[in-house]
Nucleic acid binder design. Structure first.
Length: 844
RNA sequence: GGGCGUUUAGCUCAGAUGGCUAGAGCACUGCCCUUACAAGGCAGGGGUCGGCGGUUCGAGUCCGUCAACGCCCACCA
């Protein structure tokens, strides 16, 4: 093929050129006719499209792409789909802010609704259907932004294999898996206390909790024994005294032995509560006696359940204390309650503090403390505990046998790096309950169930009406179950639809099943499942990785993948955690524009597997320099002849020595990749390449410019080496390697085969020849540098003092050495290593 | 309160199963426009490998301990 080498090769514009070519050529198209053994399947993380783009998004994806490219070149058919996680609360919140709307399910659908150009205040209330339409519109836009970023970065995904967690296929898969869980008893509903976000007004799962340090104040409050003597408790939530159902102390606490079994009355309300014993009560905290409320925190729930205490709840789903006076408060107590009815918890807390002070039941001033408070990770106010009916999937949190099985799955999984497995183990060991999957929200996959309504209007939650598989996906709030019609909705003898949706993890825990077409194409699924790798961030081991393991364990009885590659955490240039609130988030696009996509890829691939990595512009500059170097070195190597010179022309010792070191590089880089250590593969390749350009190319230059057999040997060696280096770099720098490849090769470098030792058969010599000559040349260069002379300076004579072996090797490439050093003559003497170079007079 | 990780040149980081004078790039100093590349090349200065203690003929590399930083988990009255 004719060579078309630009005079001044440029990096700019390569990504657009090659992205378009790869798409039109189908370079990364997946071939589903291959067998499972021939396929390498990747369970790509679907990015949350309503989240912001930042360097953390780039980091892991590029590392995975490098590995995908290696596997593809090494002969695997790579299944590399891309998904978008677009359902759930982040999208709802973004839609609310972006358009200035909020969802009110009681409103009718308005088919002519268009959102205002600018979000207004207060937000416009719209129907559930209008709201969901806006979610779709916005996520479509967000997905384009992500796809554009991935393509600019050169991710080698098959863009025909995409999915979104809200699309019909994902919904169908998610509902089908849920119904299977239900049929097998792995999913169940329960009316019980749950952690509840009062702003989003939804239940949240254990995996979505985080602790935040918040200020609070200990109120030392007196309850009263029958004889009127006070018994003090300390509480940070005096507003819940009206919800108090018991006092508790440790069974061994000597101070309270006489009280166990007796009753005391609460201050202000005069409600009689018993004093009970439980091991979780800590004698060292406060007075050693705690008030049990329904419910102030998760310990209350444990006490309430294990001690079988009554329920006296007052906190409503919106976070306010209920308006009506609770039935257990009568007389004066009702008057007291009217002071706090309808208030938010924090307001009621203040009012109760005042009233307790007035009544004399508050001992001293409240004591300020900092303490951890449970928050929904996306929420702004502390979680409350509300009793409500919710759906759960078993996860071992209440079942030791299942917990053990899931721990075994974690041990079966090959973790890269290995220490990440500890996080899985700790999480599973620490589970306190099953996985709460229902959410009282709108934009998500519906719980695909209806419930019969009895003649007395009661709802039979224990016997849900299940749709047949072929109806999925269904929306029970707008569709009717078979053998009913819409007029029976909410009527005695009729049905109601489950109003809830599933948590986003309930769907994204099925990404292998979604991408692999489990629900509809068993043949396709059998070719990609279980997948080879699950690449992901460390922060979602407890959610995505664990929940995927649970689903696959139930549905298929196996791990969903063989290997989990966990990338490190991304820090800002000052090594601080990036966060929106601090305002130090680094977005990738400006960096890609400044340094080029290859430079950003180079930075990402320099981060060791699982190691936290700071955004580093210096590393990006090096990557850019490397890419430019490849262009220029390629121009040199290909500039000598218009056609390939066959490797059989190679006979010069220096050329064969260079190829021997290159063969070593290939072996080492391949081993590193097989170990999932892309960073090591890059380092090995890069080091070898710079040595090649700085030493070999300089040494061979003069001979290459000449003619005859010795020149042909150089040309052939340059061609072969370049051919190998381009392929070694292709996983990291896909654009520049493809560009150079196109100058002289047919097809794509990314579909060429990974270099192997067979290509060096009969072409390798003694690698030490290369080292020996480089060492002597280095000394000649030093002599010129010391003399402040140009590297072109002529040298009259060189005397090499060295051991016999080194001398023998230097002699093999003596003509190259003399030419590169511009030396007229060289002689040798055995002894300790030194080189004496006599510069010609003209040199100065 | 537990667990995991990190701590190597001014900066960012490599240093697998312990073994010759501890490496790279950036930054810094000097020199060089050499027909692939000045967006480059050559040469050079710079490190008590977090502290302490141990194992060993020998430790940045193994063990113990302490410290700082980061992350994860925790029943937070």
């Amino acid at each position: 093929m004719t060579r078309n080498i630009p005079d001044k090769p440029q990096l700019e514009g390569l990504e657009a050129k090659w992205d378009a070519r790869w798409e039109s050529d189908g370079t990364y198209r997946f071939d589903p006719s291959k067998t499972r053994e021939e396929i390498f399947a990747i369970d790509t993380p679907p990015p949350t499209v309503s989240g912001s783009l930042h360097m953390g998004s780039v980091f892991g994806y590029v590392q995975t792409d490098a590995h995908a490219r290696y596997r593809r070149m090494a002969g695997k058919e790579v299944f590399y789909p891309m998904g978008w996680d677009d359902n759930g609360l982040p999208t709802e919140r973004r839609v609310q802010n972006f358009y200035g709307v909020r969802c009110d399910p009681s409103l009718p659908y308005d088919r002519d609704f268009t959102p205002p150009g600018e979000p207004g205040d207060p937000p416009i209330s719209i129907s559930r259907r209008n709201f969901i339409e806006l979610c779709h519109i916005l996520t479509d836009e967000d997905e384009k932004v992500f796809e554009n970023l991935w393509r600019t970065l050169g991710l080698s995904v098959d863009w025909k294999q995409t999915y979104a967690t809200i699309d019909d296929h994902s919904q169908r898969t998610s509902q089908l898996a849920f119904l299977n869980n239900l049929a097998r008893g792995e999913a169940y509903s329960q009316d019980a206390p749950v952690l509840w976000d009062i702003d989003f007004q939804t239940a949240v799962a254990q995996a979505e909790l985080e602790d935040r340090e918040r200020g609070g104040s200990y109120h030392r409050v007196a309850f009263h024994k029958p004889d009127g003597t006070p018994i003090y408790i300390e509480t940070t939530r005096p507003e819940l005294i009206c919800s108090c159902v018991a006092l508790v102390a440790h069974p061994d606490d000597e101070r309270y032995q006489s009280l166990f079994g007796s009753s005391v009355t609460s201050p202000l309300f005069g409600v009689e509560v018993s004093v009970v014993a439980h091991e979780l009560a800590d004698p060292d905290k406060g007075t050693g006696v705690a008030m049990i409320c329904t419910f102030g925190d998760t310990t209350d729930v444990i006490w309430w359940r294990e001690l079988e205490l009554p329920t006296r709840a007052v906190i409503q789903p919106d976070g306010r204390l209920q308006e009506e006076t609770p039935t257990w408060l009568t007389g004066d107590a009702a008057n007291v309650y009217s002071e706090i009815a309808g208030l938010f918890a924090n307001q009621a807390r203040r009012r109760m503090g005042e009233m307790l002070a007035e009544s004399g039941d508050l001992d001293g001033e409240p004591r300020q403390i900092m303490h951890p408070v449970k928050f929904y990770e996306k929420g702004d106010r502390p979680l409350e505990i509300i009793t409500s009916r919710q759906w759960y999937i078993r996860n071992g949190g209440r079942d030791d046998q299942l917990r053990k099985e899931l721990l075994v799955r974690g041990e079966e999984l090959d973790w890269i790096p290995n220490f990440m497995s500890v996080r899985y183990r700790h999480w599973v060991e620490g589970l306190t309950g099953d996985w709460l999957i229902s959410r009282q929200r709108y934009f998500g996959v519906a719980i695909p169930l209806w419930y019969p309504v009895a003649a007395d209007w009661s709802v039979d939650y224990e016997n849900p009406i299940v749709p047949p598989d072929d109806r999925l996906p269904v929306d029970p709030s707008s569709e009717t179950p078979d053998s009913f019609d819409e007029s029976q909705r909410g009527q005695p003898g009729g049905f109601i639809g489950d109003p809830d949706i599933m948590d986003t993890w309930a769907t994204s825990s099925l990404t292998p099943q979604i991408a692999g077409h489990w629900a509809d194409d068993p043949d396709f699924f059998s070719r990609v499942f279980p997948m080879d790798i699950r690449p992901q961030g460390p922060e979602i081991i407890r959610t995505w990785l664990f929940s995927s393991t649970v689903r696959s364990h139930f549905e298929h009885g196996v791990l969903p993948w063989h290997t989990a590659t966990i990338n490190g955490w991304i820090l800002d240039p000052e090594r601080k955690k990036m966060s929106k609130s601090i305002g130090n988030v680094v977005t990738p696009m400006p960096l890609i524009e400044e340094y080029g996509p290859e430079a950003v890829r180079y930075w990402a691939c320099n981060g060791r597997p699982g190691v936290d990595t700071a955004v580093d512009f210096g590393v990006m500059k090096i990557g850019r320099r490397l890419a430019i170097k490849i262009l220029n070195a390629s121009r040199f190597a290909l500039g000598f002849s218009d056609t390939d010179v066959a490797p059989s022309a190679i006979f010069e010792p220096l050329d064969k020595a260079m190829l021997a070191t290159l063969a070593e590089t290939v072996v080492a880089a391949t081993a590193a990749f097989d170990d999932y250590d892309y960073a090591r593969a890059l380092e090995i390749t890069e080091k070898s390449f710079w040595s090649w350009t700085d030493n070999y190319v300089e040494l061979v230059k003069a001979r290459a410019y000449g003619a005859g057999e010795v020149a042909a040997s150089a040309h052939a060696a340059l061609h072969l080496a370049l051919n190998v280096y381009l392929r070694l770099f292709a996983p990291f720098l896909p654009f520049v390697t493809e560009e150079v490849w196109s100058w002289w090769r047919d097809g794509s470098v990314h579909r060429s085969s990974w270099p192997g030792l067979d290509e060096f058969e009969g072409l390798t010599g003694d690698p030490a020849v290369f080292d020996a000559v480089s060492q002597v040349l280095g000394e000649i260069r030093r002599a010129k540098s010391d003399a402040k002379a140009s590297m072109r300076a002529e040298v009259d004579s060189v005397r090499v003092t060295a051991d016999g072996e080194l001398i023998e090797r230097a002699k093999q490439a003596e003509h190259d050495l003399l030419a590169a050093g511009r030396a007229a003559s060289i002689d040798y003497e055995e002894g300790d290593f030194s080189v004496d170079a006599q510069l010609a007079q003209a040199a100065n």
